[in-house]
Simulated assay, not measured.
Amino acid sequence: MKKLQNQKGFTLIEMLIVLLVITVLLLITIPNVTKHNSSIQKKGCEGLVNMVQAQVTAFKIDHNKTPTIDDLMREGYLKGSEPPVCPNGSKVNITASGEVTATNSE
């Protein structure tokens, strides 16, 4: 019979310790990522609103009138075939005075 003392590898205890460490790291990381998801979406929406507001200002300078979303898209100030929508699903609107806001579609 061969002796098993010279074989190299990980023991069951070592593998369980590694799995425990990985589990603890995942338990710490996952809640932090999901907790920041709403603030990430909020900041993305604020950025989109600011970008559309800049395009409204540029349109006003070029055409001396307050645009609608359709005007901005038709004239090439906004790209895409659909009106802009925030990451959280809010629609971007332009008021009669030219202020850009984001409102929930619900």
Rank of each mutant, 00 (worst) to 15 (best):
M1D: 12
K3L: 08
L4G: 04
L4M: 05
Q5C: 09
Q7G: 08
Q7D: 11
K8M: 08
G9I: 08
L12C: 12
L12E: 15
I13Q: 11
I13F: 14
E14D: 01
E14F: 06
M15P: 03
M15S: 03
L16F: 13
I17M: 04
V18R: 00
V18M: 00
L19H: 10
L19T: 08
V21K: 01
I22W: 01
L25W: 01
L26E: 06
L27T: 04
I28R: 13
T29H: 05
T29Q: 09
I30F: 09
S38M: 07
S39A: 06
S39M: 04
I40K: 00
I40E: 00
Q41R: 01
Q41P: 02
G44C: 12
E46R: 04
E46T: 03
G47Y: 13
G47N: 14
L48V: 00
N50C: 02
Q53K: 12
Q53I: 09
A58G: 05
F59R: 05
K60W: 13
K60G: 08
I61C: 03
I61V: 09
D62N: 08
D62M: 12
H63C: 13
H63K: 15
N64S: 07
K65E: 05
K65D: 06
K65P: 03
K65H: 04
P67R: 14
T68I: 08
D70L: 06
L72T: 13
L72P: 07
M73G: 06
M73E: 06
M73C: 07
E75R: 07
G76T: 08
G76F: 09
Y77C: 03
Y77M: 06
Y77S: 05
L78G: 09
G80L: 11
G80T: 12
G80R: 11
S81I: 15
E82S: 15
P83H: 15
P83G: 13
P84F: 10
C86Q: 07
P87E: 09
G89C: 11
G89A: 12
S90K: 04
K91Y: 01
K91R: 04
V92A: 01
V92W: 04
N93L: 15
N93R: 14
A96S: 11
T103Q: 01
T103A: 02
S105R: 13
E106I: 11
